[in-house]
């Protein structure tokens, strides 16, 4: 049309710009938005599906046959969960300054547990410990090694030993200094439905705590 004096594309781009560009820019913008919106369902489809989330619903574990000093292992959301019934002697040892002095985070200050487990025994009831059994170093499963001494040396107070890179934790999952693991073992949300049944994956009533806020699993 009237623009015929400009005879190259470049010219039109630069000088004829203001006139035609609103529609062109809007068109480009809509194409961009459309492409981005199209990407969303694809990306979203890789998140856990409904059935996967449903399979991660809380589970109930009966503790009536778990004797003091024993551990059972259950699976919740495809993760190993340790449940230990600790003996009074073991509980006493958790509070001894000789041992707690060797811990990296004895007061459980890093958010590796729900608020109701931020105490010296890292649990609701002192004897029953519930942990996600995944080393905070690189994701191996630490071994339950409750007997003091043994192959881990005379100073070993009893706890968890990770076979992959030698990380050590005490019997409430607190990590020792001088090992590669940086944090205490995580405590999942849990509550007691009755005296001997623990429900893993659900907070006690009136507590709102997100499992996802744990610093390192």
């Amino acid at each position: 049309m009237a623009d015929s004096a400009h005879s190259t594309t470049a010219d039109t781009h630069e000088t004829g710009g203001t006139r035609r560009d609103f529609l062109v820019i809007a068109g480009n913008a809509l194409l961009g938005i459309g492409a981005a919106c199209t990407a969303w369902p694809l990306v979203s489809s890789m998140n856990p599906a409904r059935d996967v989330i449903a399979a991660g619903a809380p589970i109930d574990v009966d503790l009536s046959s778990l004797k003091p000093g024993q551990q059972i292992l259950v699976l919740w959301r495809s993760r190993p969960i340790f449940i230990v019934n600790r003996t009074p002697a073991e509980l006493k040892k958790l509070q001894e300054p000789n041992d707690t002095g060797l811990l990296r985070d004895p007061q459980s200050e890093v958010e590796q547990q729900p608020p109701y487990a931020q105490n010296w025994h890292r649990s609701i009831k002192p004897e029953y410990l519930v942990l996600v059994g995944i080393c905070t170093h690189l994701g191996c499963i630490p071994e339950f090694t409750p007997e003091p001494g043994g192959t881990l040396g005379p100073g070993w107070p009893g706890g968890y030993f990770c076979p992959c890179h030698g990380s050590k934790y005490d019997l409430s999952g607190r990590v020792f200094t001088g090992v590669p693991a940086p944090y205490n073992l995580p405590v999942p949300p849990h509550r007691f439905v009755n005296e001997t049944t623990v429900r893993i994956g659900e907070n006690p009533p009136n507590v709102a705590w997100e499992f996802g806020s744990i610093v390192q699993i």
Binding site: M1, S4, H6, L23, V24, A26, G27
Partner: peptide
């Protein structure tokens, strides 16, 4: 459509 017409207008 508007953008296309603009582009082709010359």
């Amino acid at each position: 459509y508007g953008a296309k017409r603009r582009v082709w207008s010359d």
